[in-house]
Design a protein around this nucleic acid. Structure first.
Length: 569
RNA sequence: CGGGACGUGGCGCAGCUCGGUAGCGCACCUGCUUUGGGAGCAGGGGGUCGUGGGUUCAAAUCCCGCCGUCCCGACCA
């Protein structure tokens, strides 16, 4: 393509409200433009990258035997009601009505619709099946941000596996895991698989593919030895055992005037170190007041509480609710002797004694609390945040915390959706059993942004060859020089005939502008044609990644550059 | 949803305090000069100042409402 005919609106200044590097550069380079919050137009350059990413994803899906579909973006409410997710998805689902007043939703994922098609699988003999699509999803995110990284409308590759047995599901899950490793490798994204929370998807297990980046929104806890990595919503660590205080075994109430915090309770005469305190958080789980207990020096992880209890809507109680149910304000709360409220406690409190906690009366606390004796715990669970430096649960090495972009997520769903929608098959014994499903997603636009986020310098983007909008740019320093023009045309034609995606910069512009633009939009190879070197029969070949320039004879440059590209694809 | 900030040609900004009918840089068009790292000079086109109302002889500017966008947090497959 000839640059002079293309719409590549590069900008010298980034939009003032762009923060993330990928956001600034994709806008400046003329790849994307915002229509409104969370909705971006892909310009020709942006679409080319998007298409190349999608093609790689498609290629790897096809190679594990997945079959491509294309499902509607707009769904009837009924199918979401059947799975129970019409309510579960809450405000995150875009909803509308048609002229007849029927409720509709814009699809945020496609378990329901794919499962409805799976109703036609009636025999185990047709299994396994892997179905996928690359299609637009709509999610009414509370806060779209960072350009393409978190949006409300985006193309996603979503695939679904159907199996008779858990072993079959495991196999399809593993196939996807391997395919994802290959995809991210081809995209030059350093994605690491980590244990994840399954959230609203449900199911028995899930793995996220996380790309380390400050622009990300998730924290991954990982062991530097490489034997453990998990989303902080799921991570655990090994903590040193605490010896309970033996000087306080009798439950007793004592005055703590003005004490409202863990720290203050540590300081006060007769108080206790935070590891010997119980922190009592009053939460509302689907409308039910619930006490969540963690050790005094620990932080409650709300996602863990959600996962442990299966609650959908979780929020802290208001001060009014707290006083109504416990009779005291935050700072003096505790679970000792509490009846009629659900109590969920962190595993680290199991069998602890000699503890100090609020007495549900302002300015009073208990000491000598024995969890087993004094607190009616309904459920035990891992509820606490892991901190960096704590010991790896596998090898004991100090854990580190890494900020990441969630670039893929694979789930073992089990029979949840098949049961809800009645997707059963006959097994070899002639018995009707629900299908076992897996669900697997990669956001295409987010992958584009993640690549931009991890492949740029102060001059602009540096696309890997596999996804670059063009593989080579032929830059003509001076279009008035006839020798330059004819040489450029010849090299351009030669590269095209070799199947290279090449951009001819034939614009009437100064060399500096062309160089700056080529670097901004991140074309991996540049062939510069100017009178200076042409006099010697040479052109320049520059690689965007390292900036190194070599002189190459006119007659061999096309062959040499296309060989380098073929090797990098 | 809580906190903060901002809406002025395509992009970046000034003007607002102290009302007088919109300006600068980049980009764009024309001409001349220039031509290997974002050229120079001259001329030119383009803006309901987010929106509705109010105050006023007069509103980008003051007052009120609404809408939108961004950032932090909460939330989020």
């Amino acid at each position: 393509m000839r640059w002079s005919n293309l719409f590549i609106p590069t900008l010298r200044d980034a939009p003032a409200d762009a923060e993330a590097a990928s956001h600034k550069l994709l806008v400046r380079g003329g790849f994307i433009r915002q229509l409104h919050a969370g909705h971006y137009s892909l310009l020709p350059l942006g679409l080319k990258v998007h298409d190349k990413v999608a093609a790689i994803v498609r290629d790897e899906m096809n190679s594990i035997g997945a079959q491509e579909f294309l499902l509607p973006a707009m769904h009837p409410a009924a199918i979401w009601r059947e799975s129970g997710r019409w309510e579960v998805m809450g405000d995150e689902m875009f909803r509308l009505q048609d002229r007849k007043g029927s409720d509709l939703a814009l699809g945020m994922t496609h378990e329901e619709v794919f499962t409805s098609l799976a109703l036609e699988i009636s025999s185990y003999k047709a299994l396994p099946q892997i179905w996928y699509q690359i299609q637009t999803k709509f999610r009414d995110e509370p806060r779209p941000k960072s350009g393409l990284l978190r949006v409300r409308e985006f193309a996603m590759k979503d695939s679904y596996s159907f199996d008779l047995t858990p072993e079959g599901l495991d196999r399809n899950f593993d196939l996807h895991h391997e395919a994802y490793v290959k995809i991210f490798d081809r995209l030059s994204l350093p994605a690491m698989p980590v244990e994840a929370s399954s959230g609203a998807m449900g199911g028995s297990g899930s793995t996220e593919f996380m790309v380390p980046s400050d622009a990300g929104e998730d924290d991954v806890v990982r062991c530097p030895t490489g034997d453990y990595a998990a989303n902080s919503e799921r991570a655990t660590s090994t903590l040193p055992a605490i010896s309970d205080r033996t000087d306080q075994t009798e439950l007793s109430r004592f005055p703590t005037p003005g004490v409202r915090t863990i720290a203050a309770l540590e300081e006060i005469e007769g108080g206790a170190p935070s590891v010997h305190q119980i922190k009592t958080m009053v939460m509302v789980l689907d409308g039910e007041i619930t006490l969540a207990l963690v050790r005094g020096d620990h932080q409650l992880n709300i996602q863990k509480l959600i996962d442990a209890t299966g609650a959908i809507d979780v929020r802290p109680a208001t001060p009014e609710e707290t006083i109504e149910h416990l009779g005291a304000s935050p700072g003096s709360l505790g679970a000792v002797g509490v009846e009629g409220l659900r109590i969920v406690a962190d595993d680290q409190l199991r069998s602890r004694s000699g503890l100090t906690t609020g007495a549900n009366s302002d300015d009073w606390h208990y000491r000598g609390v024995s969890v087993d004796r004094d607190i009616a715990v309904d459920q035990w669970a891992d509820l606490r945040d892991v901190n960096s430096g704590e010991a790896c649960p596998s090898c004991g090495a100090p854990l580190e915390m890494v900020r990441c972009i969630e670039s893929g997520h694979i789930f073992k769903l089990g029979s949840k959706y098949a049961e809800a929608l009645g997707a059963n098959v006959l097994d070899p014994d002639g018995k009707n059993v629900p299908l076992l499903m897996g669900s697997y997603g990669i956001g295409i636009g987010r992958a584009v942004a993640a690549i931009a986020e991890t492949h740029h310098d102060d001059r602009g983007l540096i696309w890997p060859v596999a996804v670059a909008p063009y593989e080579v740019v032929v830059t003509i320093v001076n279009i008035k020089d006839e020798a330059s023009m004819s040489t450029a045309e010849q090299i351009y034609a030669d590269l095209r005939s070799r199947g290279i995606d090449v951009l001819l910069d034939d614009r009437k512009a100064r060399a500096g502008v062309k160089f700056a633009d080529a670097e901004l939009i991140g074309i991996p190879h540049r062939i510069t044609i100017g009178p200076k070197t042409l006099a010697e029969g040479d052109v320049e070949h520059t690689e965007r990644a390292d900036g190194v320039t070599n002189l190459v004879a006119v007659g061999s440059v096309a062959e040499q550059v296309s060989a380098a590209i073929a090797a990098a694809r």
